[in-house]
Amino acid sequence: MAAHEEHHVVPKSVYFAVFTALIVLTWVTAWISTKDLGSSSLNVAVALSIAVFKASLVVLFFMHVKYGTKLTKMIVGIGIVWLLMLLFIVMIDFWTRTWMGVAGR
């Protein structure tokens, strides 16, 4: 049991580095949103990419998934896949609803 070194203690410096990145990115994303990047979908893409990156930092380091077991990683993976599945399968309906040109089809 003593040999079992399950507890990986993350050095404080990692926390501070992640924290700094999160703060900087928050203000960057707020600032960029006021700039016209040429197309509003580009603005959306940048905002979402930054959000995904920030969330990944929190999951990997603050929530220790980077140092976690395979099972933890699997659970996180299933969560992301299922959420995307919910979003995109419903989107199949909403994207194609007008294709037929018949009301209600």
């Binding site: 299922w82 599945m85 399968i89 199949i92 309906d93 909403f94 994207w95 194609t96 609803r97 294709w99 037929m100 209600g104 089809r105």
Partner: peptide
């Protein structure tokens, strides 16, 4: 079982293309 729920919506205004899927 999670991917089939739209078969309850065939007669709603769900897109027929989604219905096919």
């Amino acid at each position: 079982g999670f991917l089939v729920w739209g078969h309850h919506l065939y007669v709603s205004s769900q897109s027929a293309y989604a219905g096919m899927v």
